[in-house]
Design a protein around this nucleic acid. Structure first.
Lengths: 195, 195, 195, 195
DNA sequence: CATGAATGAGTTTTCATTCAT
DNA sequence: GATGAATGAAAACTCATTCAT
C-alpha cells in the first residue's frame, strides 16, 4: 500500500527521462536533471539502475514495449475483430497515423533512439527487432494482396519506411498539420485502392 | 602554397569530423579527437572556429552544401539534358538510390543530423530548408503528372519521406543489400508506371 | 535462544570484516560488503556500531585480543608448564612461527593494521600497547640471559621486530615456504645457542 | 628555460603526494589535495597522469628509484672504495640505519606502500623486486662469511627483515631515539663480531 | 531488531576553452 | 599560425548514514 513499490519507482524515473527527452538529447541530460524531473534524489537513480547507460537501456525497452502493448491491445480490440480486410487495413493505417506517425512527442523520442542505435549495438538490435515485428504484422495483413510472400514483405517494409520518414518530417519540416494529414490520407487511399 | 590556406584547413577539420561521426555521436567526440583525426593541434580548432558548436554548425552547412552541389552538378549533367521525362525521373531515382539512400556513411551522418536538429532550432531550420529544396525540385519533375500542383508537392514529400525512411532502415535493419535494392526498384517502377 | 545475541552478532560482523580484509583494504571495503559477508542487513551495522570507523576500532581490538588470548592460553598450557628454560624458549619460537609469523591471512591483516595505525592515533596506541606487552613477555623469558634488564628488553624488541619483518616478507616476497622456514629455524637456533 | 618542463612537473606532483602521505593514506588523499599541495590545478594531474592509480604507480617507482639511486651513489662513494670488508659492512649498516631505518618520513611511506602492495599485484611485484635487489647486494657483501651461498642469502634476508621490522617499530612504538639506536648498534655489533 | 529506500556530501574524471610562448 | 600547458565547470558515480515501516 503505502508508497510506490520498487518497480513503480523505476517507471517513474523512466517517465521522467521521457519528459526530459522532449527538451534535450540523452547525452546532454544529466542524472540530476532526470532525478529532479522525477522528484527524487539523484543518488536514488543509482540505487535503481546501475549506471546512466542502464537507465537508457531500460528506457528504450520501456518505450518500445509500451507501444508494442498499445498496438497489441488495439489489434485485439473491436475494430479488428469485426471488420473485413479492407476495413482492417484502413483501420490499421488510421491507428498508425494517429498514435504513432503523428504523435510528435513520440517521434522526437524515436529520432533520438535512432541516433543512439546507430552507435550502440545493443540498442540497434532492440530497435531492429521491434521494426521487424512491426513489418511482419503488416506483411501478414497484406498477404492476400500478393502471390509472393517476399513481395508482401517488401511492400510492408516500404510502408513502414515511409511512415517513419513521415514521422521524421513531422518534426523537421514543422508542417501544417492538415497538409500533412492529406499526404498520409492520399497514401493510405492508394494502398487500399490496390486491394 | 606550401601549406593549406585557412579555408582549406577548415575543410580539413570538417572532413575529420565527418570521419569521427562514423564512430561516435558528436557529443561524445572531443575536440582533441577531431584535431587528431585532422592531424592538427587541438588549439587550432579554436582559432578557426569559435566553439565546438560552431564546428558543428559549419559541418552541417558543409555536408548539406556538398550534397546540394553534387545534386546540382548532376542535374546539369548529360543524363538530364537529353532524356525525356520518363527517363529523367528514372535517372533521378537512380541517382538518389546510389548516391544518397544507399550511401551508408552518409545515412549514418544524417541520422545524427536529424537528432541534432530535433533539439537545435538553427540546425533544424537549415535541414528543413534543404529538404524543402529537394521536395521542390522533385515536385517540378512530377508537375505534369498531376493537375493540382499541391498534389504534386504532396507526392513529392511522400517520396522523399520514403527515401529517408529507407536510409534509416539501411542502417538499423542491417538489411541484405540485394533485398533492399528490390524494395527501392519496386517502388521506383510503380512511380514511373504512373507517368 | 533461537537467534544470536547482540554480542554474537557483533562478533559475526567483525569476523566478516576479517574475511573482507583478505581481499581489499578497509577503505575500499564498503559497509554493504561487510554486511553481505556477515549475511545481515547493512542497516544493522549501524545499529550495532555507531559508524564505519567504530567497526574498525572494535575489529582491531577484537583481533589483538583474539591473539592475546590465544597466546595467554598457550602460555598456561602444558608446553610451558613442564619444560626447562631452553625448551620453553624453543617452544615459544615454535608457537610464534606457526601461529603468527607464518600465518599469512593474519600477516595480511596486520600489514593493514600497521598502515591504519600510522595515520590513526587511537589505533596506533592500541597497537603499541600490544607490541609492548609482547616484548615484555619475551624480555622476561630472556631475563636470565642478560645481566642488564635493559639489554634483555632491547634483545626482545629486536626479536619481535625481526619476526614482524619476516611476516611482512612472507606476504611481499612470496617466498618458498621451506626456504622461509629455514631462515626462521636458523635464527631460532642462534638465539637458543646463546642461552 | 622559462618554467618547469613536463618531467619536472610530474616530479613536482609526485613530491606533493609524498608530502600528503605524511598525513593521510593514499585512499583518503584526494586528487584535489595533491594538486593543492603541488600548487597546481587539479585538472592538470589528469593531464600528466592518466588516473589516480597511475599517479600512485609512478610515485612508487619514483620513491623506490630515488632510494635505489641514493644507495648506488653511496656504494660508489669513498667509504666503500677504500675500506676492508669489516669496515665496509660496518659502513653499510651505518648507512642503512641513518638513511633508511631511522628515516621516519620514509618509514611512514613504506608502511603505506606495504599495505598497497598487499592488495595490488603490480605494486607488490615492484616492491618484491626492490627487496630482492637489496637482499642480493647484502648477500654478496656477506659472501665470504659463509661457505654456502644459500646461507648467506638467508642471513641477508633475515637482516633486511629485521631492519624493516625496526623501521615499522620506529613509527608504531614511538620509541626513544637513543634507546632505539642502541638496539640497532647492538645488532650491528653482533654481525660484525661474526666476521 | 530488521529492512531497504532515501539522502547528500564527496570523489574521480572529462573536456571545452584560454593563453603564453 | 601552432603548440601544449593550464583552468574550472560539470558530469557520473559511490557510499556512509539515516529513518520510516
Amino acid at each position: 500500500m503505502s508508497s510506490k513499490s520498487g518497480e513503480d519507482k523505476k517507471i517513474l524515473i523512466l517517465e521522467a527521462l521521457n519528459v526530459c527527452l522532449q527538451n534535450k538529447p540523452f547525452d546532454q541530460t544529466s542524472i540530476k536533471e532526470i532525478a529532479q524531473q522525477a522528484g527524487v534524489n539523484h543518488g536514488l537513480l543509482h540505487y535503481y539502475f546501475k549506471s546512466k547507460e542502464d537507465i537508457l537501456i531500460h528506457y528504450i525497452d520501456y518505450i518500445i514495449n509500451h507501444y508494442k502493448d498499445m498496438f497489441a491491445d488495439w489489434l485485439n480490440g473491436p475494430e479488428m475483430a469485426e471488420a473485413g480486410q479492407k476495413q482492417r487495413i484502413s483501420a490499421f493505417f488510421h491507428f498508425m497515423n494517429d498514435r504513432i506517425t503523428l504523435n510528435r512527442p513520440l517521434s522526437k523520442v524515436f529520432i533520438e533512439i535512432w541516433e543512439i542505435a546507430v552507435y550502440h549495438p545493443a540498442v540497434k538490435s532492440k530497435l531492429r527487432q521491434a521494426y521487424r515485428e512491426w513489418v511482419d504484422i503488416l506483411a501478414v495483413m497484406l498477404n492476400r494482396l500478393f502471390v509472393d510472400p517476399d513481395v508482401s514483405r517488401r511492400v510492408s517494409t516500404a510502408i513502414v519506411a515511409f511512415l517513419e520518414g513521415m514521422a521524421l518530417f513531422s518534426i523537421i519540416l514543422e508542417p501544417d498539420e492538415a497538409e500533412f494529414q492529406k499526404i498520409l490520407a492520399g497514401f493510405q487511399e492508394k494502398i487500399v485502392e490496390m486491394l
